[in-house]
Design a protein around this nucleic acid. Sequence first.
RNA 1: GGGGCGGUAGCUCAAUUGGUUAGAGCACCGGCCUGUCACGCCGGAGGUUGCGGGUUCGAGCCCCGUCCGCCUCGCCA
Length: 592
Amino acid sequence: MLRTHTCGELTAKHIPQVVSLCGWVERVRDMGQSTFIVLRDRYGKTQLVLPPDASNALREVVKQLKFEYVIRATGKVALRPAGQENPNLSTGEIELHLESVEILNECQTLPFLPSSPDVPSEESRLQFRYLDLRRDSMQRSLVLRSQITKKIRDYFERQGFIDIETPILGRSTPEGARDYLVPSRVHPGQFYALPQSPQIYKQLMMIAGYDRYVQIARCFRDEDLRADRQPEFTQLDMEMSFVDENDIMGMIDGLMQHLAREVLGLELKLPLPRMSYDEAMRRFGHDAPDLRYGLEIIDLTAWAKTTDFRVFRGTADAGNYVRALNVKGAAEAFSRKRIDELTTFVQGDFGAKGLAWMRLEANGWGGPIAKNFTEEQLQSLNKLVAAEPGDVILFVADSWETSCRTLHGLRRRLGAELQLYDPKEMNFSWVVRFPMFARDEEENRWAAMHHPFTAPLDEDLPKLESDPSGVRAKAYDLVLNGFEVGGGTIRIHDNPVQQRVFSLLGMSPEEAEHRFGFLLGALRYGAPPHGGIALGVDRLVMLFAGLDNIRDCITFPKTTRAQDLMTDAPNIVDERQLDELGLALKKQPTPE
RNA sequence: GGGGCGGUAGCUCAAUUGGUUAGAGCACCGGCCUGUCACGCCGGAGGUUGCGGGUUCGAGCCCCGUCCGCCUCGCCA
């Protein structure tokens, strides 16, 4: 070892040892007679001092030092003079009196300084990721990530789970997200697909009798990116046999309690609260509501039917909905301009027809639509929305889906803008009893809301053919601060039910056999009742770290156009490589 | 595929209504400084204002196109 200690561990106890430290030069403060150097490694920082009586040889070496040089420094640990301690450093009571300095490597002038308080543009950070990763905040989030995965593994090991790996090269199943494809050389014209999740493999492991499976698995989905979505991401994937929904949720409750306690020092009360999908949509317009604040949706459809205001009445009579948010005390904050902005927002982003509003003033209701209602109607509105002077009511009159999307969007935006919650709060909850099927309007058929192996609620089984929209699933999502951090289901473990579901999805037995034959076959050979869940590790880390984007807890993330700016992937390949794979390009790539 | 914000020195940013030589801090180069800790001080160098076109006497600023980054809708079983 070139070093005897790290840059984060020396204290007064080490006086007067002679030690060697290795690290990066974070700062050089040349005072003339003496020079101070801050040496950094991932453990901390230590101040090195070139004393006034240093030899000329040593002085010459120190003079060469610049930002981010890699050096080995040897010297005597000494107490700093009284009053010169630095309370911001763990090593702040001591300093190293240099006896020798060895330059292990130089560093060219940097595109940006990792130690600078200015955060460089995302573009340069991604291009020079190895420098970005030297920044303190990146090191903190990667350490946190490591702690979280460690605690996850500890927890599941204690619970008797087996960590099992499943293939990366698999078969494309054209349900769900777009697959990343990998061409086969041995079978020209055929492709593997990278896993969107180890879903089917883990079910097969249940059938094989490994009744507690867990894996921290890389998953791939070729869809457009978001702040909380990368094409390649990490799932905590688990599956159990002989269980129902409560067992899975209970197991994850315990995991979250463990993580919150061990990583954040936070005590969670179990069980984590649960809410049905229907209730979540009714109260919050979304299946992953942020429960750190209220601002719940109020349904005014029945009231709208009692009025003569054409927009509301017409919407309600047509079987659509009039729903509202009461933004408490927002009258002052909501200028005309602000409301116009919100209107543009809901129309542009969610396709809402418009945004109506009223506000309760000291002497009654104001706003452009207030005059459309009688005194009695306003009185009953008062009660319905529990209005107090200063409140602003935002109305959305639209279809169920649009009103949900719009009001959720408004709620989220206003929650952030009006700071309705404590950003440090960690609010966990479950959303349960999802619908089994959603109508695919484009293709005019039923589609599985989760995946086609999800078990319906027993009580809803009879409705499978007669009323598909009323069938609810044994499905559950874990929600943290308005982010879906995981979702799972109890699976169908017998073949007849699976066939009924396929048939409802418009999949003939032959087609099902063709696509999922191996799974259907396995289900006939003694499949235990089983279910599981997958949690988004990146999102979990992001939220535990208080970050607002997933890239900041991923070492080498991709841009919103799915490129790696450091390696410049994806990229063109040699003609020869294509030949070997039996591939020819339809469109020649344009050279950059 | 749609919408929004942004791109000016290596980095972070500024530049009035379209106006004269595009500025500052940090970094870089040279020098000074006896205890600094985002050290300080003096001096120097550094610009295809993302790229291409247009309007104009004149464009960093206006218009059109395009590329890149971020946010977002669609998409993500």
